[in-house]
Structure formats: C-alpha cells, structure tokens
Nucleic acid binder design. Structure first.
Length: 420
RNA sequence: GCGGACGUAGCUCAGCUGGUUAGAGCGCCGGUUUGUGGUACCGGAGGUCGCGGGUUCGAGCCCCGUCUUCCGCCCCA
C-alpha cells in the first residue's frame, strides 16, 4: 500500500468539501446557542471501558467495530465511536451530576471500523446535542425541535422526514421484548438466517429486517402498544402533544428501534431518500439508563447526533464564498502604499489579497481566478497623481478615487450587497 | 464479515474482436508587442493505463491475486 494513499475510509476536506462541512457545523452551533446549549469538547479517545460499558461487553459492535489499541502504558484505549458516552463520562468526572440540567452541544470526528460506502466512513464527523437531567416528555419534544431547526437552518428540512417511535419505559419494554422472543421463536424456521441470529442477540431488530421472508412475520408481530403501561402511554401522548405545540411534523414508524437496554421511550430519526441506504441524517432518543450504567447517579437524558458528511452532501448549493478585493501595486514604491491599504481594508473587516509577482496582466488574471469582486490598481502614474484605480470586475467599470476613500467606498459596496 | 460493479492525464471520460509513438473536453502553464481579468485564437506541459503476478511474438484490453472507491447485505452505539 502506497504511503501517499489515505487510510481506507478516511478522506481529506479541501475546498468546497471543507466549506460544506464547516457550514453544517456552524449552522448547528448557532441553533444550539439559541436553545441555550453550551459546547463541550471531549478527547477523541477514551479508556475502552467508557464505550465497552455503555454498549455492553457482549455486543458485536464492541469487538468488531471499534478502533481499540493498547498504549505504551498498557492501557486499552479506544477512538470514540460516538459522542454520547464520552459526554456522560465527562458529566460524571466533572461532578456535573450535581448541577443539572446540562445542555450540551458537541461537534467532532468519530471512528468506526466499518466497510466504507458513500456517507459511511471510518473517520466521520458528528454534531450532537444532549439534554441531561430533565425526564419530562417536553424535553424530548424540544430536543427534537432543535434537530429540526438545524435541518431547517441548512435548508434541507424539505428533504427529510421525521420518523418517531416509542420504546416504552424499561418495564414495558422488557415485557414487549419477551413477547417478541416468544412470537418469533414460533416462526424460527421460516425466518431469514440473519434474523435467526438476531433472535438470540437483538430480537427487536427483526422488526426492521429487510429480508422479504421476515417481513410478513414481522408485520404481524405483537405491537409494543399492547404492552405500554400507563406511565409509558402518558409519556408518549405528551411527547406528541409537545411536538404539535412546537410545530414539528412527524410520522410514526413502529420499526424504529434501539438495541441497547438503557434506551427508553423516545426514538426518532430524520431520514432522506437521497443518500441510498445511508439515509439517516440525524437521529436520537432517550437514554435514561446510561449515566447510571456508567457509574453515575440515575439521570434521565435525551439526545441526538447528526452526520456531518451526510448533511454536507444534502446541501444543494455549496456555501457562498466571500469575494476578496485584490490590491495590485506596480513598482516598489507603490508596494509600500499597497501594503498600507491592505492593512486598512483588513482592519475594516474586508477580505483583501495582494499578489507578489507578475506584470499587471498576470495579476489581473490572478485576481480574476481568486474570484475578486474589485481590483485596486496603484502604479507610478497613480502615485504621482495621488489617486488609485478601482475596478469592478463584475462589470469592468473602472474609476479613479483618492486612496483615503478606498476603504469607505468598498465598505459601502459590501453593505449594499448584503442588503440584496 | 458476505455478494456485486468500477479503477486510463488535476477533473469528466473515449480507447473498436489484444497489434506499432495511449486520445478528447475542461482545467493548468505560455503567447496574441511594452500598465488591465473574464469571452476568442495559437502553442505547451502533464499518464508507473490502481498495484503485483501470469498467458502471448505482442496486454490499457485476456486470466489470477491484491488495494481503493461505489452499490446491496450485516451492523448501525
């Protein structure tokens, strides 16, 4: 394998890719801020136990899909495969279980040893939000609404639909699970090979199996609805009332499940049909059991994570680039003046660049290539006359103005453009 | 982990049943006189045909292996 080849499933973010990526994160950050969420940055690796414990030691995921390694001190470390467990660990180690609620936003790289596909990479990026402390269904509704607002801010709200389900509380869920195992066991022989395995490890997943032979059986499986206790039913009703109040549209999809036991009540996914089989763009749920499972006090929590790569692909238009102003001096005396002008333009908050070499033609070409909106030309002639040439590259109009007016004129132009 | 498809210049691709120095468009660089970009014209650079084996007088093209990307499945914390 060549040394200049990137590692399988990793990719460089350059140019438009990087701009799309940054745009997604910045939009999410702004929305999170409006909701009163604070950004946390946790390490990209943790003691393996942080993730192993949150996932259950027997899980396939732990052994097959985590980037785990032993460091020089002999400790087992793991590149984080998701954000929630790390945030919960940070909550506990910083003693913040004493000051709830915590409203946390995060963004950063995650790592999973998976077979790459479009929208599925070994190093990928997520934005996420965790609302830790409140156990009320309105908290779920608000968290979901915040996710919707992120999608709306990105202009992709019309591309996705919100699919919603409840898993019931821990007791309801356990009863339902037992009933499913019982039901599916009767049809064991007729289930797909994969689902026969799922029956042992993760029976809920049979419900969203894609195998045709499973579909008929799964569609007639006992519904959770039959097992919801009063408490769970009340929660589910209030969640939907809350979403209605927040003005969030959704469809109920009983096939949305979560494998792990600490999940309860709310499960949701914003999905699109535009990304093939990696159509889930932002998803989450309630995990009232996780903080306790990690050694903290019993703490209710709801959260979600969104895939930055998938969202970036969904953006129709790449984020616009701010057109710079090109300053073109001719001659060393003019260069001094140009540098002064550059400082002024940048101090005024404008994007300004200067080319170091080439004749006027070359520098004009370069100005055009970097997408400059205007060019300021100052050479010997201009110096002696005490003016500069200001050329609008969009229409070729060129005017002579005094150097001291350049910043003001260009600021006015920018203000005018922002209003359009 | 399983099944399948692709892999030729920076990018998008062509290359007929294996036959001499591998092509196009876009992009890039230079030029169309000396201080004016974008459109036009002329010219130029740039390719281990993913990599490694094999068959053949001869392989971009056939065979085997391998890697990447992509499409399903598994998984989806």
């Amino acid at each position: 394998m060549s040394a200049v080849q990137p590692v399988r499933g990793t990719h460089d973010l350059i140019g438009e890719q990087q701009r799309r990526h940054a745009h997604v994160i910045e939009a999410a950050r702004r929305v999170a801020d409006r909701y009163g969420f604070e950004e946390w940055t946790t390490p990209i690796f943790e003691n393996t136990a942080v993730f192993a414990r949150s996932l259950g030691d027997t899980s396939d995921v732990v052994s097959k899909e985590m980037y785990t390694f032993t460091d020089r001190g002999g400790d087992s470390l793991t590149l984080r495969p998701e954000g929630t467990a790390a945030v919960c660990r940070a909550l506990i180690t910083n003693g913040l279980t004493q000051s709830l609620p915590q409203k946390v936003f995060y963004a950063g790289p995650m790592f999973r040893y998976e077979r790459p596909q479009k929208g599925r990479y070994r190093q990928f990026h997520q934005i996420g939000a965790e609302l830790i402390g409140p156990g009320e269904p309105l908290a779920d509704a608000e968290a979901i609404t915040m996710g919707r607002d992120v999608l709306a801010a990105l202009g992709v709200a019309d591309e996705v639909t919100l699919e919603l389900n409840t898993l019931g509380d821990l007791a309801s869920r356990a009863e339902w699970r037992a009933a499913l195992v019982c039901y599916f066991s009767d049809y064991r022989e007729r289930l797909s090979e994969d689902s026969q395995l799922r029956l042992e490890r993760n029976p809920l997943r049979i419900l969203d199996s894609k195998a045709p032979e499973d579909r008929l059986i799964a569609n007639s499986a006992p519904a959770l609805d039959l097992f919801l206790n009063d408490e769970s039913r009340r929660f589910w009703d209030e969640l939907r009332r809350g979403l209605d109040a927040f003005g969030v549209n959704y469809t109920i999809n009983p096939r949305i499940v979560r494998g792990l036991d600490y999940y309860s009540h709310t499960a949701f996914e914003f999905v699109t049909t535009r990304l093939g089989s990696q159509g889930t763009v932002l998803a989450g749920g309630r995990y009232d059991g996780l903080v306790a499972e990690m050694g903290g006090p019993q703490t209710p929590a709801i959260g979600w994570a969104g895939g930055v790569e998938r969202l970036a692909m969904l953006l129709d238009e790449p984020p616009p680039v701010v057109a710079p102003i090109a300053v073109i001096p001719l001659g060393s005396e003019a260069e001094c003046m140009a540098i002064h002008l550059l400082n002024q333009l940048r101090s005024a908050g404008l994007r300004a660049e200067m080319a170091y070499r080439g004749n006027l033609k070359k520098r004009m070409e370069r100005a055009n290539r970097i997408g400059a909106s205007h060019v300021v030309i100052l050479g010997e002639i201009e110096l002696t006359r005490g003016i500069v040439q200001l050329r609008d590259l969009s229409n070729g109009r060129q005017q002579e103005i005094k150097p001291e007016n350049v910043v003001e004129v260009l600021c006015q132009v920018e203000r005018a453009e922002q209003q359009v």
